[in-house]
Each structure stands twice: as structure tokens, then as C-alpha cells.
Nucleic acid binder design. Sequence first.
DNA 1: AGTGAATTTCTGTGAATACTGAAATTACAG
DNA 2: CTGTAATTTCAGTATTCACAGAAATTCACT
Lengths: 184, 184
Amino acid sequence: MTETEETMKALSPVQQKFILHWGEMGIRWGINRTVAQIHALLFMSPKPLNAETIAETLGVARSNVSNSLKELQGWGIVKLVHVMGDKRDHFESMKDVWEMFRVVLDERKKREIDPTLILLRECIEEADKDKETDEYTEQRLRDLHDFFVMTTAWYGQIRLWPTSALTRFVKLGDKARKLLGIGS
Amino acid sequence: MTETEETMKALSPVQQKFILHWGEMGIRWGINRTVAQIHALLFMSPKPLNAETIAETLGVARSNVSNSLKELQGWGIVKLVHVMGDKRDHFESMKDVWEMFRVVLDERKKREIDPTLILLRECIEEADKDKETDEYTEQRLRDLHDFFVMTTAWYGQIRLWPTSALTRFVKLGDKARKLLGIGS
DNA sequence: AGTGAATTTCTGTGAATACTGAAATTACAG
DNA sequence: CTGTAATTTCAGTATTCACAGAAATTCACT
């Protein structure tokens, strides 16, 4: 933000608008702004970009881009590729939106939900033994545990569905519930 | 963290463990640590707590609790209640885990997804007109737009299902897809 | 209206996080 | 090997965010 735009590559107003928004969205979901912006840029880009270009386009330091790209690769939604006749590393985003979100959700499950489930089990186990923890508290932790077990099992199912199946499922609307015989 | 525990109300080790974990989880999902900790405390508590007690129990400033409670009320998962013979405000968390997450997801949809959809439509609209934005870029934005439309419609469906229906749906496993005739 | 308790608002400070630029390292061509 | 470009690491700086404590306000009761 300190520098002027003289070093920036041309971004159309539309691209700017989306990149800025995606950056803000990132923050709200616990993702670093620059990381999200780079992802937005790569996602929209017809061809892989090198780190230098990304830095110039977004007006951030080269080293910042380097670290952010590592982060994105860690999430599994950006990968390093090579371009003919250019020895520099280039990067491209996963382009299939469904697949992209599946990857991110899988990763968040692994990083956040799974450890939470382990911790909840430990808590319930310990609460069951000690005298200090209220019976009510233990029950709430059980509720929470069961909720995560249920939702992750459910996600485990539908994450395997092809996009077309999800589409058709939505189109069925409330009929789906009746077909499955699981009306309230 | 600066103060010792002399002012803190008794929290069992189990409660401490969960509160600290929930605080860290909060951060990873873009929620302030103290806000998440207060939510954890109220969620586990058998009875409503007043702000003073919360501040002492968690060892944070009274004003911090006040603001955090406002935040939680804004999310719709904590509400103000009154306790007989006590003129102070008391607060309690929603206790039904399914309902609680439904409320949070509804709110995040309203705050984040809906505005994103609006922005995407604007971007696509503008990209369609201008010469600057690549055709490829426009298509990626369309993909993203369609993804959000689809998933929100789908969430709109299942959010209405009673918990029992979701449970049964998970139990059906892959049979559900066959019953619905939406195999790949 | 007046008093004390409860709550909120506000402002300065501290901590955490993000970021830059330089230095170090690595990769590669000749 | 040697030199150059590319990349990463690192240390210092800046920015953002969280928080405490004081001041101001609201509330409840009289």
C-alpha cells in the first residue's frame, strides 16, 4: 500500500475488483489477505504466472509472494509448473471450482475438525472420571462430538458424488427427502 | 495473560482445555479468540452467566466481555436473559448444536456469500462489456458464480431437514444416491 | 430528580501478524 | 568450476488487531 501503481502490471477493473474482494473474503475465513489475492489472480489467469509477475501485478514484495505461494501449495490448490523456454518457476491455480473447494474442505477437516474430535473425546473421557466437571457440561461436549462425527461422515459421503449428482440432487428439491423416505 | 489466576473462578481442567481449543478454532475461522472462548464457556455452562463472572472466569477485562457478548448476540447464538432476584444481565448460549450451526451458517451466508454473489454478477456483467477482461477470466468468474448458486440452493434445501432426516441420510450411505437415481 | 450499580464507549497501549528489503542460498548455463 | 538469475530465509519494521482501564452513560430503584 506504500507504493504507487507505477510498477503494477495491467489489471482490468473487473480483475481488480474480484481480487480485492477475494482478499477480504479470505480474511473473514482465516486466510491471509495476500494469500487469497494471489489465489484470485492465479484462478482468473489463462496461463501460469511467475512470482515476479505476481509481485508486480499486486504490488507486494517478491518475498511475500514466495511465502504466500508456499502457503497456497500447502493447501493444495496451487501448483508449480514450468513454461517452455523460461527457467523461472510458474504457478497455476486449480481451475475446477468444485474440485478446488473439495480440496480445501478436506484440508480444513484434516487440520481443524479431526483434532477437535480427538480433543472432544479426551475431554469427555476425562470429564467422565473427574468430579469437577458438571454432568451437564459433559453432555454438551458429547452433543458437540456427535455433531462433528455426523457431519464429517455426511461430508465423507457427498464429497464422492460427481458434480452432476449434486446438481441433480439440488434440482430434486424436497422430493429427495420423500424419495429417501426420510420425511420428518 | 498478564494476570495470575487469583481472580479466576474455578474452571475444571476439562473446561479449560475445551475453552482454549475453541478459542484457537475461532481464530482459524476468522472469529476473535475471546469471543470464541466466551461462547465455549456459555455453551458448557448449565446456567446463564453475567458479564462480571465471565470476565473473572476467563481473566479478561469487563469491557472486553461486553463487546464480545455483543458480537455473539450479533451472530445470534447467545442471548440476554434475566435471572430472578438479580438485576444484572445474564447470558446463555444456544444449546442445540445443530440449530447453532444452522444459525451461524445462515449468518455467514448473509454476510459473505450473498455479497460475493452480487459482486460476481457485477464482475461478469462488466467483463462482458469491456475489452480489457479476458474471455477466459470471465468464464472462471461464471464458474465460481454458478458454484455458489448451486451450493447455496443446496444448503437452502437441507437446512430445512430435521436433524433426524440428516441422521438417516448419513446412515443410508451410498444407497442414497442409487435411491435418487443420480449415480454418476 | 438522585444515588449507586451495571454496562457501554472510548482512547491509549501492547501483542500478534503481515510485510519489506537485504542477505544467503540454490539452480542453472556456459 | 564460475557467474548470473531465481528463489528462499531472515531480521527488522510497519500495520493491524485485541485488549485494558478510565470515563461516560444507562438503568433501576427510590
